[in-house]
Design a protein around this nucleic acid. Structure first.
Lengths: 238, 238
DNA sequence: GTCTATACAGTGATAGAC
DNA sequence: GTCTATCACTGTATAGAC
């Protein structure tokens, strides 16, 4: 009944050690935070899901806020860097805009919970100075996209009348909202019951974004999605 | 020093009575809920702002949830009814779509805090069965707008290729987001510092909405905002 | 690295005096 | 209609045994 491990070599660990435990806690926390909100999720609940007691979490993270920082800080920074790399590509503004939209969806589907957390806890970040970097990063992302829009206008690719700031706000919102609706990787109409996958939603979002910026003459031009996809893949190395 | 009120007639009330007190509590609660979130706002905090103690609130409202119900239930119902009235007007679908967008902004600016509450506490409503009517009402609103879109497509006013459900989701989100950014009745760009008033944001949103649905041939047609405004004014009696 | 036990502040809600 | 006082509970976080 009781099989013993061989005497040499490390014994099977009764309590999981090191970084993998930390990662497990982070993943669980991300899930709960995204589902119930940061402040509505208790340390006790997180602990229960990873089979430990609340007090033990404090061996891995100093405070609850720390846990949140650890979840969002790096992914958001990486997102900004990727956006900047795409914005600097030597292709026309429309292709860079398309690549940005696509990249955002990739980032989202690769790290679903964290990105939900970034958008839906905006109130919390605004009220806690230690999280002000979240808003700074969002402003930075706005700046990058605003510049793409302005360059597109200057090049005659986008309508001259658009207000790049309002348009950026609208498009960014559109992306976040569309991605946010993809809760379990799909999005089910509450009215018709029909289901929309990531590809369909991305397609629709991309189409909408271009429709907002294109001049009448180019409104029905092809979307060049495949080219933009390839650009994203090459530039971000995937 | 001590002036007495005349013996007849009601004495000056030392503690404010009746419905006005209730209204004051509701207004204060709406403000705090919108600013800090429903669950992050304590009954003690609400009480402090209206100069009473937490226990006394329970003379006016049975529970904290009750307070929230009292805030959102009627305004949301009214919003739906207004949307339905507008959708039934005997004018073309595009004008009805424009009127819907405009009405939504009116509703929002007339009752700022409540509408913020309706959009930003979606997680909470989803998790508490007693608030399921919030989602039902949103679905109802979706249905109304989806029908406008479908009728516009059938009439050849809108593009035949649009998916009315996804497009409705996008436009609704656009309206909510735009209105939500108008926190203090205006919206200040974090990048350029430039300020946008309600009129400018409404203008932009309306333009975007029409741009998403119009076929290429009518993409630059005039927006008929004045006509839509008048329609809203007449239909909703303002 | 995890557990036990606990400190301490804050929560929604109630009972009864005034 | 409001206040005082309090209950039962949950929250984050800590100290020290194992």
């Amino acid at each position: 009944m009781h099989a013993f491990a061989s005497a040499n070599g490390p014994a099977a660990p009764r309590r999981r050690d090191g970084p993998e435990r930390r990662a497990q806690i982070l993943a669980t926390a991300a899930e709960l935070f995204a589902e119930y909100g940061f402040e509505q999720t208790s340390m006790r609940e997180i602990a229960k899901r990873v089979n430990m007691l609340a007090g033990s979490l404090y061996h891995h993270f100093e405070t609850k806020d720390d846990l949140l920082h650890a979840l969002i800080r790096d992914p958001q920074q990486q997102m900004i860097r990727e956006n900047e790399r795409l914005a600097a590509l030597p292709v026309d503004a429309e292709l860079r805009l398309a690549a940005t939209v696509i990249a955002r969806f990739h980032q989202f589907s690769a790290n679903w919970h964290v990105h939900v957390l970034l958008m839906q806890e905006a109130n919390f970040y605004r009220q806690h100075a230690e999280f002000s970097y979240v808003q700074s990063a969002k402003n930075q992302a706005s700046l990058v996209m605003t510049r793409i829009l302005d360059e597109g206008i200057a090049a005659g690719l986008f309508r001259a009348e658009i207000d790049s700031y309002l348009t950026n706000a609208t498009i960014s919102q559109m992306i976040s909202a569309a991605a946010g609706r993809l809760r379990q990787g799909a999005f089910i109409s509450a009215v018709t019951g029909r289901e929309y996958g990531l590809a369909a939603v991305l397609d629709h979002t991309l189409d909408c974004a271009l429709r907002l910026v294109r001049p009448a003459a180019r409104i029905e031009a092809p979307v060049r999605r495949a080219e933009a996809e390839r650009l994203v893949g090459d530039c971000l190395g995937r």
